[in-house]
Amino acid sequence: MATPDFIRSLRASAGHQLLWLPGVTAVVFDDDGRVLLGRRSDTGMWSLIGGIPDPGEQPAACAVREVHEETAVHCVPERVVLVQALKPVTYTNGDTCQYMDITFRCRAVGGEARVNDDESLDVGWFDIDALPQLNEFGQLRIKQALSDQPTWFDSTSFE
């Protein structure tokens, strides 16, 4: 994921300290029920499409923008499927971030899936029963997007 300019500016004064940042993930389905994935250039792993909203940008608009920027696919958000505070991550340069991820179920409405920026090595549509290896992050989000359950959130913190 490319680092947005506004985060570079924050880092200039914040150093490596923990930044609490918004994040958005899109689970995009086509009319055949396939899910859109990108193979990340930084890890080589297949994943859902996502990114960081620009200041003032609505999360759903960010999902639409990120999907198009990374895959050339146009999509429409249908619903929020998950809201989750992720564990802090420390990058190789020492920067530490913690993301609040909002995941949207989206429907593809146009465009042809292709690598559309330098964040992906490959892009493709996958049948649910023939997904490449995905981490727990992606698996949970796809499962929630396919379910009729209400928005998932971690309710254990209320107990």
Rank of each mutant, 00 (worst) to 15 (best):
K143E: 14
V81D: 03
L140G: 00
A61F: 08
E57G: 04
C62H: 03
Q139I: 14
D129I: 09
D118L: 11
W125E: 04
P77E: 10
V76P: 02
V80F: 01
W125G: 06
F126W: 15
Y99I: 10
G51M: 05
V80T: 10
D122Y: 04
G124Q: 06
I102W: 06
V35N: 07
Q144T: 01
V81A: 05
L36C: 07
L134D: 13
M45Q: 15
A85V: 15
D95F: 12
D101S: 10
P59Q: 02
T25K: 09
A26M: 04
Y99E: 10
L86C: 07
F126V: 04
A72L: 02
H74Q: 13
E66I: 04
K143H: 08
G56K: 05
V67K: 00
P77H: 02
D31S: 14
R107D: 06
H74P: 03
S41Y: 03
A85Y: 10
V28S: 14
E69M: 09
D127W: 11
R141H: 06
S41E: 09
D30K: 06
P59V: 04
D127N: 14
P53T: 04
D30Y: 06
G138T: 01
D101V: 15
R65I: 08
C75T: 14
A72S: 14
A63G: 06
L36V: 10
T25F: 02
A130I: 00
L131Y: 04
V80Q: 01
N93F: 02
D31L: 07
P88I: 10
N135K: 09
E69Q: 13
I49K: 02
P132D: 08
P59E: 04
V76K: 11
T71C: 13
A26P: 07
W125M: 07
T25L: 05
G138N: 03
R39P: 06
A61T: 11
I142G: 03
L140N: 10
G110I: 11
R141C: 00
T92L: 12
T103M: 08
G138M: 02
V27C: 02
